[in-house]
Amino acid sequence: MTSSMTEPVLSIANLRVAFGARTEAVRGLSLTVGRGKTHCMVGESGCGKSISALSLMNLLPRGATRSADHIRFQGQDLLGLSDREMARLRGDKIAMIFQEPMTSLNPAYTTGSQMAEVFERHRRTTRRQAMDRADELLARVGITAPGMRLGQYPHQLSGGLRQRVMIAMALMCDPELLIADEPTTALDVTVQAQLLRLLQTLQQELGLALLLITHDLGIVARMAHRVSVMYAGQVVESGTVSEVFAAPTHPYTRGLMACIPVPGTTRTGEPLGSIPGVVPRIPPGFVGCGFRDRCDFATPDCAQTVPLRGAGSDHSYLCRLPPDGTRVAAA
């Protein structure tokens, strides 16, 4: 791991989230995010990315339970915190941005009052000070005429503007860790590019630790230092972005990469890669590889416990196959 770094801002070990006795949505997730670093969680819908993020914040929906060896944030284990202590941390040291900018602002309040509220709650300031701070941050996230926007309601803003407001709101209290759950998925590509650039700049300037959840490998390549590829609640491959992209090893990662058209390389009419089937629902106590039903290389051995293998200096994956390219598709 990143031993040269000092203590990571966030370190999760063996996180599990279960919905009753029927489904285990996250199965032994471990990851670390360092100061000023971006860690991307990537995977298709339903593989447990968002649930992992919510479980960090202890905001799981009803009926879900979490357990972990530790969830350490700045040296403090979040598992031991009371609801009140956790609420004090949320929005202050740990901030979160949601996927859907059209619904993540409350339609009943002006943007200014929503932003100010976060600051007042955590910093016990007056409304005027909080509004000044909101004004400053709106300008920071590239909104022209922040004074006017502060007095507007969410329905008066475009999707891109709303997401900028959400980012500004998340930064109100100078968080150490920013969790962004598919922050640009609902936006069109030009706005998406602007926002990603903005996030990157802010992260470097403020030294944020960024946990970015996405299903878009293009975003990973562009933003991340490290990447965890998730499948069915497990990290099936993780490492530095350069190593994982240079030598994707897990069949699922390879499948994902094959789904992306590359201009100039992919010819018109040539079928894109696809992974047949959907992410299965996995009950607690499941043994073996969760991907085996969709994998081209699956053998009966895949139903046994799968080893975590190294594939480079800072790159590991969860599969029985060796890291070299020599593999034979099962019949």
Partner: peptide
């Protein structure tokens, strides 16, 4: 299930605050 309810909680809002200030006005 709307995001702004989750967003308010993620910003450290108490339960009473979520019910009275986020849900009720809407």
């Amino acid at each position: 299930s709307l995001d702004y309810i989750a967003a308010a909680q993620a910003a450290g809002a108490s339960r009473a605050h979520v019910l009275l200030r986020e849900v009720l006005p809407n």
